[in-house]
Amino acid sequence: MRFDRAIKNLERMFSLKREYDIIEEEEDDEFESGYIPQWVLNSNYFQVMRLKKRLLGEYEGVSLEKAIPGRVISYDVGECYLISSECCSEFYNPSEGAREAIVSNLKFLHGIGQKTETVLKRRGYRTIADLTRHPKWGKLAREFLQLLDMSDFKRVQEVMWRWIPKSHPLSFRLAGLNRDEDFAIIDIETMGLFSRPIILLGVAQPCEGKLKVNQYLVRDISEENAALKIFMEELEQYSAIISFNGRSFDIPFIEQRLNYYGLNSIIDKMHFDLLHYIRRAWRHIVPSCNLSTIEECILGLTRRDEVPGALVPEFYREYLETKNVGPLVAIINHNRQDVVSLAKLFSKLSEALVQ
């Protein structure tokens, strides 16, 4: 009964007006889109509408299974559609010297500031390991090293963030303590801002020069619950998350949708939100920190036949109303490119932040 009411509430949301503005090119500089773009340039809008029309014609009468090969996954609360793919993708995660760089910062121990660190290093305590024999700081040093030895990197990250910004290069070095296959690169597509359904959850795993991508598609809103739970089960196998603005958007959004279905789940994993590091590394050389801008300026990538994030809800509604899978193809390609780009940006940041 509760689930039926939830579905009816979601269906009513689809009748709400769009959540984006169409602006002229000369207005571009006046709009700071943030990191969840809610505006579309006038010229781009009509280009995307032509794309939608072309896709509707190209995929008229084509089944989902033929247009987007995948398989149905069943769960106790329903089904969703899994699309699996694999591509070659660089993923450079420098592990050499990562632990040494972290333990060389004595300020990660509570009570040690810059002045105290300078005095201690002058006295021969060059690393936190050296401090294990210190009469005052020995206990804290041993506790910190124990977290590292137990591979409790999530807790290490929390300790580090007390004393350094989330964008600090040492925070990024913590990634080097993980294997490539320990990372889940995630990105979601939604029907709008918070409280709207999630329609696609993408997760990619780097492994031996390749990127294995799983995308959990919600074929209609009744499948959101199952897609969320299946996605969460996959996420359990990873120890670290890579995202773009995921700490502020993707993770809270997923947790909120889980809560909507009565699951008070918390995603408690080490998290590398690339937006923080991108701001530090490149904010002086790029016009904005939108993902599309970063792709163009840093990766040299310009997407073709692209549906902007702000128009994903409109494309999905078109699919629901017409049962034509053409708009879904654009959404799935958009999501897959997002996670592939994040893998490449992680590698570029490794080069930029790790000296």
Rank of each mutant, 00 (worst) to 15 (best):
F46I: 04
T116R: 06
P287D: 15
L228F: 00
R336G: 05
E96H: 10
K53F: 06
S104Y: 11
S350E: 09
R155T: 15
I298R: 00
M232E: 11
G113F: 05
F253I: 05
A240C: 06
N290V: 02
P135H: 03
L120S: 03
V119S: 11
E30C: 11
D182N: 11
V286G: 12
V339R: 12
E25H: 12
R219A: 06
M1A: 05
I199G: 08
R304H: 04
F91W: 15
V159G: 01
I242T: 11
A310R: 00
D152V: 14
L217Q: 06
Y59S: 08
I331P: 01
M232V: 12
M150W: 14
L55M: 10
T132N: 12
N44P: 11
P165S: 09
H271Y: 04
I102Y: 06
N259P: 10
G111L: 08
P287I: 13
E321N: 14
R2E: 04
E96C: 09
V159K: 14
Q256D: 15
H110Y: 09
D180L: 07
G300M: 08
R133Y: 15
I36N: 07
D28I: 13
I36Y: 07
S265N: 15
I230S: 01
K154G: 15
A343E: 12
H276N: 07
R2M: 14
E100K: 10
S63Q: 09
G61I: 07
L328P: 15
L345W: 03
G61V: 08
K107M: 02
T127F: 01
G111Q: 06
G34V: 07
W137I: 07
F91L: 13
M191G: 09
D305V: 01
L51Y: 07
K53H: 11
E181W: 09
G138V: 04
L263I: 14
V340D: 04
S104G: 03
I221W: 06
Q237D: 08
G111A: 10
I241T: 10
K17Q: 10
K154V: 09
D268W: 05
Y45D: 15
M160S: 02
V119G: 07
G246L: 02
P287V: 08
E255C: 00
M1F: 02
F183W: 08
T302N: 10
K115M: 05
S195D: 00
D250S: 07
N9F: 13
L301W: 09
K344H: 11
